[in-house]
Design a protein around this nucleic acid. Sequence first.
DNA 1: TTTTATTTGTCCGTATGTATA
DNA 2: GTATACATACGGACAAATAAA
Lengths: 264, 264
Amino acid sequence: MTATTDHRRARTGPPAAGHRDAAAPAGATLPGVTLWRRVADQIAQAIAVGTYGTGTRLPAETELAAHYGVNRHTVRRALAVLRERGLVRPARGSGTYVEAPRLAYPIGTRTRFSEIVGASGRQAGGRLIAGAQELASIEVARRLGLKPGAPVVRLELMREADGVPLCVATTFLCATRFPGADRVYAARRSMTRTLAQFGIADYRRGATRVTATTVDLGDAARLDVRPDSPILVVDSIDVDADGRPLLTTRTRFAAERVELVLES
Amino acid sequence: MTATTDHRRARTGPPAAGHRDAAAPAGATLPGVTLWRRVADQIAQAIAVGTYGTGTRLPAETELAAHYGVNRHTVRRALAVLRERGLVRPARGSGTYVEAPRLAYPIGTRTRFSEIVGASGRQAGGRLIAGAQELASIEVARRLGLKPGAPVVRLELMREADGVPLCVATTFLCATRFPGADRVYAARRSMTRTLAQFGIADYRRGATRVTATTVDLGDAARLDVRPDSPILVVDSIDVDADGRPLLTTRTRFAAERVELVLES
DNA sequence: TTTTATTTGTCCGTATGTATA
DNA sequence: GTATACATACGGACAAATAAA
């Protein structure tokens, strides 16, 4: 018997307890809302205002409970919400820490990485990890409209903001059309300028697909995230003015640091 | 760097020659590419063709090694790539299983959920988990353009394809403008029809933001995924013809089952 | 419930070809 | 030309988790 079938399994169903918390007493701001929700809002507000700065440790749960005049469990419920939102990160035995706000990353446009990062007042950085010429796998060939085995240039990039790694990206270009693209990129340090070197004045995003997985060990090290961290995987194909594919890229974002903003 | 350009395997020394032509000619298709890459392509192709069906177990690593005439480590290297691509999922002690192909989910358009799922030949399903009127938190109020504490309707939805849960969504609507929206939705079972009931003939996507986190326990149970699974979090605001916010939704997708397709 | 076999995960090592300083 | 580092491929052993007897 096929042992798998995670889904399709006959789930007798968790009752999915719709939390109907007893509306607890007092609390100044929003009467009528559940207490843990009010506490969550207050802590979130404190983080937004800067009372608790990025990277700092929140007061212990017992202290927060005393400060807001609620039970520690109510604080824990509130912190769970903030954790889910990505605002804080609990560390067992150490404390709960304020996460850095996620960088809003516009996608599906022509915007340049350095402009995106610069717009948020941070210093954009990046480097070419590796570049090589190889032969196209079936998958890459299909995306670039080439035959499997055709020569392609592979670029491995890493990009960071204020020295914090944001994403690593693997790009493939047709080696016949862009010979030595890896060396060109190493010199020009920009995809736009690299393509311009080969006479491509304009290009646009042809297709974009977004998924999420857990990080693998190599990317975990390069992105400086814990193993099993979630990452955003963005597969994209850029095409020239005639719609012909120029390059295909798989970008892995550290999900905890980035928020993709889709422009419609 | 030009690695693997001339990767000839005609060695004189060790008698490893008889490997390549056992049962399956792994080398026939793409000479020059690294061996593990060829094996990965072949297995991926076998999955695509249907030789290994969704949910079934792949032959053991030792069997695959024998079948392709390579070492087990080479097979492992190939499987690691497929795992990274989300095609297979290894289970220690049990085997390596073929993942279900991810449902392509267009986003940023007006497409209806049932149409999206139906287009892939699956049966769309869904149900209202919970609906209630409450008071807006700071965050919800900001997104809906209301004052904190204003009455809002909260809808908790779950959506599935062929009985497999795809996502759970939390939607907030202004209770003043849409009184009893939860009961209306329970009857009409569609957001479009619910809004139509209140005289909203047309609405569009105003803003969309995408992140990823690890699933929390409640969603893990409802989505029927393992704890610590990655989920795609899509925050969206829908607006009316005048650009005024109608509703805001946070959708959590089981990342292993969905692939967001951005349309540009 | 215990045992046994199977399968993946993680080490060790060896050999070879390639790229780089 | 030489030395070094790295990637590929193979061989073996054992641990850990799972499934079946």
